[in-house]
Simulated scan of single mutants.
Amino acid sequence: MTQYTFALDLVNDPELIAEYEKYHSNVSSEIQQSILDAGVTKMQIFRFENRLFMIMEVDDTFTFERKANMDATNPKVQEWEQLMWKYQSAIPGAKENEKWVLMKQIFDLKK
């Protein structure tokens, strides 16, 4: 199992943040299936204020390129991504039009 961690900011507006959370409490089956089809086996999103952290576990079929290609050809995913931009704000240091930024692991406690 491979795990990736990402960060993203939300527009710092309590009403928009509440709407964003509401959308994520009932993500459509089409969006969920597209994530699973890309090889993601587990995905969690956490929020503090307007900062989001996502932990994504993937299987051996997952690649970022494959997921990007699948997303680009899926009208439901494109519709979802357009809608989400209303609430999202690129994190400092993100490239132009980049949403979720891959985080670098700097510590791992193992027993």
Rank of each mutant, 00 (worst) to 15 (best):
Q44M: 11
A18V: 05
L83Y: 08
L52P: 07
E21S: 09
F62I: 07
K86A: 03
V27E: 01
W100G: 00
I17Q: 09
I31R: 00
D59C: 05
D71C: 04
F64L: 09
V27K: 01
T61V: 13
A68C: 05
Y4G: 07
V77Y: 07
S34Q: 13
S89T: 07
T2H: 15
A18R: 08
P14Q: 08
Q88R: 09
S29Y: 02
F62D: 05
P75D: 06
T63A: 07
K110P: 01
I35K: 04
W100I: 00
K42M: 07
K42C: 02
Q44K: 10
D13L: 00
Y20R: 03
I91R: 05
W85C: 03
K95N: 09
K104E: 14
S34I: 08
L36Q: 11
R51H: 09
K111L: 12
I31P: 00
F107E: 08
A94V: 04
A72F: 06
T2W: 07
N97S: 10
I91P: 01
Q82R: 14
F6S: 04
F48L: 11
L52E: 06
E21G: 07
I35F: 09
E79S: 09
T2Q: 15
S28Y: 00
V11C: 06
L36T: 12
K99H: 08
E57C: 06
F46W: 12
K111F: 10
E49L: 11
F6T: 02
F53P: 02
M56R: 07
K67P: 00
K111D: 14
F64Y: 07
P14F: 00
L10Y: 01
N12Y: 09
L102W: 02
Q3P: 04
K86I: 06
I17R: 05
A18G: 02
W100R: 00
E15H: 11
F53H: 08
K111M: 09
K76E: 15
E49S: 14
E79Y: 11
M70P: 00
Q33E: 13
N74M: 03
A7G: 11
A18T: 11
K67G: 00
A18Q: 10
A38W: 01
E81N: 14
D108A: 10
R51T: 12
F46I: 05
I17V: 09
W85D: 06
A7S: 14
F48H: 10
Q3G: 09
Q105R: 10
W80V: 04
D71V: 13
V77T: 11
L10G: 03
T61Q: 11
F62V: 07
K111A: 12
L10H: 04
N69F: 08
T5K: 13
N26A: 13
Y87H: 14
I91E: 01
E57T: 14
S89I: 00
N50V: 06
Q3M: 13
D108G: 04
L8C: 15
K99Y: 06
I106T: 12
I17M: 14
T41G: 05
T41V: 13
I91C: 00
D108R: 10
D60A: 08
V11L: 08
P14K: 05
A7V: 14
